[in-house]
Amino acid sequence: MLNLVLFGPPGAGKGTQSERLIDRYSLVHLSTGDIFRYNMSNDTELGKLAKEYINKGQLVPDEVTINMLSAEVEKHPEAKGFIFDGFPRTKPQAAALDTLMEGKGSGITAMVALEVPEEELRNRLKERALSSGRADDADPAIIQNRIDVYNAETAPVKDFYIAQDKFYGIDGVGSIDDITNRLTTVIDQF
């Protein structure tokens, strides 16, 4: 089973590259943002619980997030593997994901990280704001805050995978095809 953590800062191209990897490797894409939205809009028990925290401006506890993720993994018993997008965001979440996958008789194959300089990220997010209308991508202060939060809170997760010899940094600058080729060159090793 091929299980990938697709990693990178906002604007690195995770969504674009996920679509290509899903098709090439027949993987199931699990985006924690999508999972949260689904559970909250369908008023599942976990969705109601998550909404309570979000409405208070608090982070959803790892246990709730892992339970949602576990339920999604269970929906795909015949999957050839998964791409985890937006998770894990902390070292405790990475450890919880390992435990979850071990309980399914599997594990994380690799973390592939799209590495993009901050100036390029800012430019991409501004362009995305124009093409998609996402207000959070239009404000330079919000963009910088998202990058700063990533650097402070999420980037350290790579150390968790480095310690397991599962981290692969990928140059995330260039054409979409070039970046896909770099990713598949690494992934084809597994």
Rank of each mutant, 00 (worst) to 15 (best):
A110M: 15
M111T: 15
L97S: 12
L121H: 08
E115S: 08
F82D: 00
D85Y: 03
G107S: 15
T90V: 04
N145K: 03
A113Q: 09
E127L: 09
Q144A: 05
L97V: 11
P92D: 03
P140G: 00
F84Y: 11
K80D: 12
Q144E: 11
T90F: 01
A129I: 01
R122C: 05
Q144W: 03
P92Q: 06
R89Q: 06
R122K: 14
M101I: 14
E127A: 14
A94H: 08
G107C: 14
S132F: 01
L100S: 10
R124W: 06
L130I: 08
D136H: 01
K104S: 13
A141E: 13
G86C: 10
E78K: 15
D136V: 02
A95Q: 12
V73Y: 02
K75S: 09
K104F: 15
I83M: 06
L114G: 04
L130M: 13
K80S: 10
R89K: 08
L130G: 11
I143V: 08
A129P: 05
L121I: 10
R134D: 05
N123F: 03
F84N: 04
M101P: 14
G107L: 12
I143D: 00
N123T: 13
V112W: 01
F82I: 02
V116H: 03
F82V: 05
D98I: 12
K104D: 12
T99W: 01
E118T: 11
D139P: 01
L125I: 10
A110W: 10
F87K: 04
L114I: 08
R128K: 08
E118I: 10
A95L: 11
E127G: 13
T99D: 13
S132P: 06
G133T: 02
Q144S: 03
T90K: 03
E127Y: 03
S132H: 04
I108W: 07
P88N: 07
D98H: 12
N151Y: 01
Q93I: 05
G103E: 15
N151A: 02
K126S: 13
K80W: 03
G103L: 15
D136F: 05
A95K: 14
A113D: 09
M101E: 13
L121V: 09
M111A: 11
A138S: 12
A113C: 13
G105N: 15
L114A: 03
A79P: 07
E102L: 14
D139L: 02
N151L: 12
R122L: 10
D139W: 04
A138H: 02
K104E: 12
Y150H: 00
M111Q: 14
S131C: 07
L97N: 11
R128V: 07
I143R: 00
P117V: 09
